[in-house]
């Protein structure tokens, strides 16, 4: 009965016209849930603001926020319950299990971008790199926001992986296209039974 912590990623969409204080009311609780059970918030960021593919509650646009954390499986239930409580403001949310590798990479990317914004702005906010901000602090949340939007717009190919800081941090990802065969998908799928044999091998002879 040893529950082990996993890595999770929650993506949630809020109404575009949501006020700052209402948003922080929603967001401020999330780290509490995680840290209450010796979890760790690895990244909490605005991901993008974009138009939705279909209307949700008559909203055509939405603001996407991403939360990456390490916690026990039970924590996801608290988080989803909390988000569901604000179901007129939070239009959609989804928690997905991710691999440690992806989580750590995202954390490093978030940290380096936070560090960069610190250098640009205010040195005293040195802790923010370590502890991904509670939404109460406006300065650190502001900076990565604009950055993620930019990268998403500039590089539609792979918005996460190729943020400029990250390429600086680990250049070998770019140089050697064939890196060691990591299988990040293997563990990613939440409850996949990886048993289906390759039945579909009768190559589409009859189209």
């Amino acid at each position: 009965m040893a529950l082990k912590p996993n890595y999770y990623e929650t993506l949630y969409v809020v109404r575009p016209d949501l006020k700052e204080d209402e948003l922080s009311k929603i967001q401020s609780k999330l780290p509490e849930f995680i840290e209450a059970h010796e979890g760790e918030v690895m990244k909490s960021d605005k991901w993008a603001e974009r138009s939705l593919a279909y209307e949700i509650l008559d909203h055509k646009r939405g603001v996407f926020y991403i939360l990456i954390f390490k916690a026990l499986p039970t924590v996801t239930r608290d988080i989803e319950k909390h988000l569901r409580f604000y179901n007129t403001d939070v239009l959609r949310f989804m928690t997905v299990k991710i691999t440690e590798e992806v989580a750590v990479r995202e954390k490093n990317a978030a940290e380096s971008s936070a560090a960069e914004s610190e250098v640009a702005e205010t040195p005293p906010a040195a802790e923010t790199a370590k502890a991904p901000e509670a939404p109460a602090e406006p300065a650190p949340t502001e900076e990565p926001k604009s950055e993620t939007v930019e990268t998403a717009a500039d590089q539609p190919e792979t918005p996460q992986e190729v943020t400029p800081e990250e390429t600086a941090a680990q250049p070998q990802e770019q140089e050697t296209p064939i890196e060691e065969p990591t299988e990040p998908q293997a563990a990613e799928a939440e409850t996949e039974v990886q048993s289906a044999p390759e039945t579909a091998e009768e190559e589409g002879g009859k189209e």
Partner: peptide, 8 residues
């Protein structure tokens, strides 16, 4: 070296 990511 592509990853299948639903956010992409």
């Amino acid at each position: 070296p592509l990853e299948i990511d639903y956010k992409n």
